[in-house]
C-alpha cells in the first residue's frame, strides 16, 4: 500500500458519496446515468465475489462492502425512491448495456491470467470498469449543461483513476517482479476516456464558468 493507491481509493469513495449525497439532498438524479451505476454495481459484485473466502486485509474488505453498499443505494434511489425515480432522465440515458457487457464477457474469456470461473469474472470486472463510464459521458454530452455535483462526480472518478496509474508506476519502481499488464492496459484505456471531459472541466474551472460540453 502506498499513498497514491490510498488517495485513489479515498477519491473513489468520495466520488460515490458526492453522488449519493446529491441524490439524497436534492431528491433528484437528473443528469445521472442509471446504466453507468448499474454497470458499476455489476463490476463490484463480479470483482468482490471473493469477499467471503479470500481475506486480504481489513482495509480491502471494508472498501469492498462500502463500494457495493453505496452503489446499491444509488441504484435503489434511482429505480425505487418515489420522488427520485421521477427525475431520472431515461429518454437520454439510452446506451445499450449489451454493447459494453458482451465484448467484455468475450474478451475476459479470451484474455485472462487463469482459466477458472472467479478469475474470469474478476477479469470481466476489470474490462467492464474500463468502459462503464461511457453511458454517463454520453448522457452528459446530450444534456450539455452539467450541474456542479455531477461534474464533480465525474471529475473525482477520473482523478481516482489517475492516482491508480501513479500507484502502478510507484509499485513498478519499488516492488521487484511486480507487473500487471491486464490491469494496466485496461486502466490506461479507462483513464483515457476521461481526458476530453477533464479538458472542459478545467477550462470551465479556470474561467469560473459553468461546465458546458460542446456538441
Amino acid at each position: 500500500m502506498n499513498l497514491f493507491r490510498f488517495a485513489g481509493d479515498i477519491l473513489h469513495l468520495l466520488s460515490i458519496l458526492v453522488l449519493l449525497l446529491k441524490i439524497h439532498a436534492t431528491k433528484s438524479c437528473a443528469g445521472i446515468s442509471l446504466k453507468t451505476q448499474e454497470l458499476y454495481l455489476a463490476v463490484f459484485i463480479t470483482r468482490y465475489l471473493d469477499l467471503f473466502w479470500n481475506f486480504h486485509s481489513l482495509y480491502n474488505s471494508v472498501f469492498k462492502v462500502v463500494y457495493i453498499g453505496t452503489t446499491s443505494m444509488i441504484v435503489w434511489y434511482m429505480r425505487r425512491h418515489r420522488n427520485v425515480k421521477l427525475t431520472y432522465d431515461r429518454d437520454h440515458d439510452t446506451f445499450r448495456y449489451l454493447f459494453l457487457v458482451a465484448p467484455c464477457a468475450v474478451l475476459s474469456l479470451l484474455i485472462n491470467a487463469r482459466y477458472n470461473l472467479f478469475e474470469i469474472l474478476w477479469t470481466f470486472s476489470i474490462y467492464l470498469e474500463a468502459v462503464a463510464i461511457l453511458p454517463q459521458l454520453v448522457l452528459l454530452q446530450r444534456t450539455k449543461n452539467v450541474d456542479n455535483l455531477t461534474g464533480n462526480y465525474v471529475f473525482l472518478l477520473g482523478l481516482y483513476r489517475a492516482f491508480y496509474i501513479l500507484n502502478w508506476v510507484y509499485r513498478f519502481a519499488t516492488e521487484p517482479g511486480y507487473s500487471a499488464w491486464l490491469v494496466w492496459i485496461s486502466g490506461l484505456i479507462q483513464t483515457g476516456l476521461y481526458l476530453d471531459f477533464f479538458y472542459y472541466y478545467v477550462q470551465a474551472w479556470k474561467q469560473s464558468k459553468k461546465l458546458q460540453l460542446p456538441s
Binding site: R47, H56, K64, Y67
Partner: peptide, 10 residues
C-alpha cells in the same frame, strides 16, 4: 505467477 491469483488492489 504461481498458485491462486491474488488481487491486492480494489
Amino acid at each position: 505467477a504461481s498458485g491462486q491469483e491474488t488481487h491486492d488492489e480494489l
